[in-house]
Amino acid sequence: MAKKKNFSKQQIITWFMDYILEQDQEPSSVYKFCKTYNLDESSFYDHFGSFGAIKSSIFSTFLDHTLELLQKDETYANSNARNQLLSFYYTFFEILTANRSYVVLVLRNKKQALDNLKTLYKLREGFTGYVDSLGIKTLDIDQEQIKKFQRKAISESAWAQLLFTLKFWLDDNSPSFEKTDILIEKSVNSSFDVLEATPLQSLVDLGKFIFKEKMAMS
């Protein structure tokens, strides 16, 4: 049987995810993967140079799909930065939930912690760029270097917050992952309350919630 030469990046992603879910592990080689799906190996390399590149692209695809859905929502377009980020989180984690079996298999392997950082690097680039595009208000200081530092600090802290939420979601056993939804609301609101110098009650609420859930999970 002639090997397939005309296939898309998305088809490779779908086959790769299916392979991992069915075998509980990555293919041992590109050769074996291509043989499983009757693919021409050289055509595979036209799209991806390694399995690591596929895994990274999968998470950036989740991000792209999230943004595509948000762009079609008129309510989102007319919302402020706080509500837009909340909408992003809810939509992004809905997409993760639809692919939870794959995400858990890929990210829960503690032996591959460094590899997981590589897996998420495209997601990190896309997400921090998205946060920058929200135009979140910073302190009104008339020095460009300080403004750049503030914007960098916001995007980096937002990324740390997303990673924390992702870890929480991986461990969340509540129905419909409702505790993750609570964490999203409290953490995003707390972040904006700090930026807007509003009362610290939301930070206290967030701290109590995280402490209570960590105690319950331990």
Rank of each mutant, 00 (worst) to 15 (best):
E68C: 08
L69H: 05
L70I: 13
Q71C: 12
K72F: 05
K72L: 14
K72C: 11
D73R: 00
D73Y: 01
E74M: 12
T75M: 08
T75L: 13
T75S: 14
Y76T: 09
Y76D: 06
Y76K: 00
A77Q: 15
N78C: 11
S79A: 10
S79N: 13
S79E: 13
N80F: 03
N80P: 09
A81M: 03
R82H: 10
R82C: 10
N83V: 06
N83Y: 09
Q84M: 03
Q84N: 04
L85F: 06
L86R: 02
L86D: 01
S87G: 14
F88P: 01
F88H: 01
Y89W: 10
Y89K: 05
Y89V: 06
T91W: 03
T91S: 04
F92N: 02
F92D: 00
E94D: 10
I95Y: 03
L96P: 07
T97A: 06
T97I: 03
T97S: 08
N99M: 02
N99Q: 04
R100N: 05
R100K: 12
R100M: 06
S101L: 14
V103S: 02
V103L: 00
V103K: 03
V104N: 06
L105G: 02
L107V: 01
N109P: 01
N109C: 02
K110M: 09
K110H: 13
Q112D: 09
Q112W: 10
A113N: 08
A113L: 11
A113C: 07
D115V: 13
D115M: 09
D115F: 11
N116R: 04
L117W: 05
L117V: 12
K118M: 12
T119R: 08
K122D: 05
K122H: 13
L123R: 02
L123A: 00
R124L: 09
E125M: 11
E125W: 12
E125H: 12
G126Y: 12
G126A: 07
F127A: 01
F127E: 03
G129S: 15
G129E: 08
Y130W: 03
Y130V: 06
V131W: 00
V131R: 02
S133M: 03
G135C: 04
I136A: 01
K137N: 13
T138L: 11
L139N: 10
D140P: 09
D140Y: 12
D142L: 12
Q143W: 09
Q143M: 13
Q143K: 14
Q145V: 14
Q145H: 14
I146D: 11
K147W: 07
K147L: 12
K147S: 14
K148T: 10
K148Q: 15
K148W: 07
Q150I: 07
Q150A: 07
Q150S: 11
Q150G: 05
Q150Y: 13
Q150L: 15
Q150V: 07
R151Y: 06
R151I: 11
K152N: 15
K152W: 09
A153V: 08
I154F: 07
I154Q: 07
S155E: 04
S155N: 03
A158I: 04
A158R: 04
W159A: 03
A160H: 12
A160N: 12
A160T: 10
A160F: 10
L162N: 02
L163W: 08
L163R: 10
F164T: 00
T165R: 07
W169G: 01
L170C: 00
L170G: 01
L170T: 01
L170H: 00
L170E: 06
D171N: 13
D172T: 00
N173A: 10
N173T: 05
N173S: 11
